[in-house]
Design a protein around this nucleic acid. Structure first.
Lengths: 206, 206
DNA sequence: CCGCAAGATTGCAATCAGTGCAGAAATGCG
DNA sequence: CGCATTTCTGCACTGATTGCAATCTTGCGG
């Protein structure tokens, strides 16, 4: 990677750090793009060369997470189900230390009292759902208008959301209780699929 | 209701209609609040007395839907499960004609090519999820940190989303295929719950 | 080392959403 | 009709976001 790209990456980090520091101190709304630019030693106009909107700074790590989940689902060994891959992914994600996402705590606080940011997050989680849904659909054998993959994906993301620790300092890696909850979640998904399978068998028999 | 409130309601409608007409013609972004105000014969400043943001016009009917679902869940007869109530609600909602939501088609088009609006919708659907989750939790007997209600709610909303006809002119009320899908969806939810119950029984037995 | 082409940064001007405020206009009531 | 309450407007201002054109940097070939 050339010096050019390294420098750009570094500037991006600088902007993120400056932004999150200010968001933490003053809140999202009370921090202007001009403030962030000043704190990061760039021209206000330059900010938009790095992030399309102020909101996008808050979700800067999302692209990587998305790519990482996509890779995990795509590159799983034959025989490993989407559920298995997902389970591992969730465990790994929750186990990650503050290094992986140094802004998580601040972000959670921002999301808690800013509707617009919460909306943005819902949307991004929706992208996760799409990814999972596709993988599940592939596992189940594609059918037109099949609701199952979508429901499974939605439920899985709901579980992921709920397992996300609210506070970075607490239970990381997933403790026994968390692990038990995760297994319950997957039992729910398996059970749902099984329930349907049974219902279909009965229907075609009757 | 006094003349005052009737007139206000009428103005609100006028604004909505004007806005949707313009959104339809030019798109959401290309329509300014000033345009809407002009089309509705009000001062631009007045617009914000009716809607907090331009986006909110697009989701003007949501409050009613939310209240209606809340009422359906709250006022169901004893013995009627959340699932039953939800099933009826979904059928009724899909069956509604264009009168109930005259802007649905335009809204769907807007949502399809505007990320910010899609985000907003995800967020609102999240509120639905919360509502359903609470009701399911009550049915299931409250437990701390129970993932089940959230997963069920998420899956239910996913089903609702999927069943929402893309085009108002088509299949309304829900046709046989739609009904079958809906029943499959609920079979999924029942199966998921059952799977968990079984697992818990096994766990406590072993 | 020099100079050029590509890419990055910046300043400027404009558009548009959203907000606080104060005055003007309309309405409901007695 | 005259007052108290609401509603509607105009105005001024902050702040996000964008297009454009000028300027600066870097990477590379010679």
């Amino acid at each position: 990677m050339g010096l050019r790209e390294r420098k750009k990456e570094q500037t991006r980090r600088t902007i993120e750090d400056a932004a999150f520091r200010l968001f933490d101190e003053r809140g999202f709304h009370a921090t202007t793009v001009a403030d962030i630019a000043a704190a990061a030693d760039i021209a206000p106009r330059t900010f938009f060369g790095y992030f399309p909107t102020k909101e996008d700074v808050v979700f800067c790590g999302f692209g990587d997470s998305f790519a990482s989940l996509a890779a995990a689902l795509r590159e799983r060994e034959p025989g490993v189900t989407t559920f298995d891959a997902l389970r591992s992914f969730i465990i790994a994600m929750v186990a990650e230390g503050p290094e992986a996402d140094p802004h998580r705590d601040v972000r959670l606080r921002l999301l808690a009292d800013n509707e617009a940011l919460a909306s943005h997050e819902s949307h991004l989680l929706g992208r996760f759902e799409g990814l999972i849904g596709e993988a599940v659909a592939a596992d189940l054998g594609d059918e037109d208008n099949d609701l199952r993959p979508r429901m499974v994906a939605a439920a899985a993301v709901a579980a992921l959301k709920a397992l996300q620790p609210t506070d970075h300092t607490k239970k990381r890696p997933l403790d026994d209780e968390g692990l038990a909850q995760l297994d319950e979640a997957f039992a729910f998904l398996h059970g749902g699929i099984a329930g349907l399978q049974e219902r279909r068998a009965t229907a075609s028999a009757g």
